[in-house]
């Protein structure tokens, strides 16, 4: 239109048009909305245990009960070895990242659908939704971590210097949950089946991860394929950093990390492509 002629000097702050390329990830806007990300995480944390009798204690009760069951079933009944550390500590060190991961994965998968009221009424980068859902359970992990320290004190287990690498393994766990969550949360918008299938996937995933047993029990020839599961590296890393068990293979970790970055990118691309129809389909 000709009347816009005088406007050419000013740059539009927003241009609205159909999205074309696959790789317009617009990650900058995620950064611009970081305050909202913070509030979404804060909301998740604040509301998780509202109106429960023992409140935030659930955060530690769940992995503790799991640990007791594992100790009884795997250690006492099945006589599973535990890499030379007391089995309860051995199991809890793995349950720490695993509880986080399963929590984050299930929250992330349902996140976009449960945020339907936001998605249909307000604009913000939709990536914030699964991102907040995967980040919020880190707070839970922190509390469980304190319990683990008590357990270690009780069983006289001293952490190695590898403790400083723990943030790296936490990051890997977050990336794993996020990568899968990006796919499942977007898919869930169109197919609610995802909600039913995720608990099952999480359960199978746990058995192919060394939560209840050490990696050393996996036959040598399967070890390579087994390690494709990024949670193997995460759990091994946690055990090594906290309990000083055998360190994970650095080469394997690097491959794992790279593969994760790739999956995370692919998840983001998929999410962004699906995102356009969220408000119309949800």
């Amino acid at each position: 239109m000709e009347c816009t002629a005088g406007m050419t000097a000013q740059k539009p702050s927003v241009v609205i048009q159909p999205q074309t390329g696959l790789f317009q990830l617009d990650l900058l806007s995620v950064w611009q909305y970081r305050e909202l990300l913070y509030f979404l995480i804060w909301r998740d944390v604040m509301t998780r245990y509202k109106q429960t009798a023992i409140g935030a204690a659930w955060v530690v009760v769940q992995p503790l009960i799991n640990m007791l069951i594992f100790t009884f079933v795997f250690s006492r009944l099945a006589k599973v070895p535990s890499d030379g550390v007391p089995y309860p500590v051995f199991a809890f060190a793995a349950l720490l990242p695993w509880s986080y991961f399963s929590q984050a994965l299930s929250k992330a998968s349902g996140s976009v659908v449960t945020s339907a009221n936001l998605v249909t009424k307000i604009y913000f980068p939709r990536l914030l939704i699964p991102l907040a859902a995967t980040l919020a359970p880190i707070v839970d992990m922190f509390f469980s971590f304190l319990v683990l320290l008590l357990l270690m004190l009780w069983f006289n287990v001293v952490p190695s210097w590898g403790l400083i690498t723990l943030p790296f393994f936490i990051l890997l766990a977050v990336l794993t949950a996020l990568s899968v969550g990006l796919f499942t949360s977007a898919l869930n918008v169109r197919y609610r089946d995802v909600g039913s299938i995720m608990p099952f996937i999480a359960q199978v995933w746990m058995y192919v991860s060394p939560v209840a047993y050490p990696v050393s029990m996996v036959p040598e020839q399967w070890r390579m394929i087994y390690s494709l599961n990024p949670m193997v590296g995460v759990i091994e890393g946690f055990r090594w950093a906290l309990l000083g068990t055998t360190p994970p293979d650095p080469a394997l970790m690097a491959v794992s990390a790279l593969a994760l970055l790739f999956f995370c990118l692919a998840g983001t691309v998929y999410f962004k492509a699906m995102e356009q129809s969220f408000a119309d389909v949800i």
């Binding site: 406007m7 000013q10 539009p12 702050s13 927003v14 241009v15 609205i16 048009q17 159909p18 999205q19 998605v119 249909t120 009424k121 307000i122 604009y123 356009q276 408000a279 119309d280």
Partner: peptide, 17 residues
């Protein structure tokens, strides 16, 4: 308000929405 994308066409917005 960018909640849903247009199928075609274009809009330019000058300012914080």
């Amino acid at each position: 308000s960018r909640i849903t994308q247009p199928s075609s066409g274009r809009a330019q917005i000058y300012g914080r929405v």
